[in-house]
Amino acid sequence: MTDTTAAEPTGGQTRDLSGARDMIVCEDVSKWYGDFQALDGVSATIKEQEVVVVLGPSGSGKSTWIRCINRLEIHQEGRIVVDDVELTNDLRNIEKVRSEVGMVFQQFNLFPHLNILDNVTLAPIWVRKKPRAEAEAQGMALLERVGIPEQAQKYPGQLSGGQQQRVAIARALAMEPRIMLFDEPTSALDPEMIKEVLDVMKTLALSGMTMMVVTHEMGFAKEVADRLIFMEGGQIVEQNTTELFFSNPTEERTKLFLSQIL
């Protein structure tokens, strides 16, 4: 049903993910807000270590979809299975999925009353029950990884947008997730700050993280993505490997979208 042979060369690297296990499986997922249908039978599978970029005009349901994967939104029909755990009303499954899936938001959503280090270590200490010293060491390591260890004692309001978004990535990574979801991570940033965030995301992708990214950054998609998914009106219109998607789109709507955005 879905095209999962993403063995094309992407961004200078060759990856064969055909043997990898399924990380996220969506079957016929639908969701309504009142009488507006936001998702309409979305089906897709994402393999371990795969990087998938979701494209689409605004209002096409891409954000809703990845928020359903984290159960920030609740789908009403269909199945979502994340790392062999099905998302249901089961308390235990929700807790498990939340700690396996990290999420980065468009508006950063850092906690403004905590300093940067506390932002990163709060969840490991209270959710993963790590001792504080260990959590702080890990937090500093992560801040170093995203390139801002010197800001650890500052507050979010004192940081630039790009720095805040990198802290948000570090905060999500501190829970040691197996999947990272990015909901338009660069849309709220000034142009000169986009690159620093994308660079962090690229290193993350190279390190083998399974990623689902909603973005309009075509450069990032071409360079890093294994596969692209194009959505419109709550449905998946087309999904294909990066190269084929850009060079040879099959659907008319995809072509139209690409012609507008490129």
Binding site: M103, N109, A123, M175
Partner: peptide
């Protein structure tokens, strides 16, 4: 966003 961010890192 604050609620969602807290939920997304797994807080009860």
């Amino acid at each position: 966003g604050q609620h969602e961010a807290a939920e997304a890192v797994g807080m009860t």
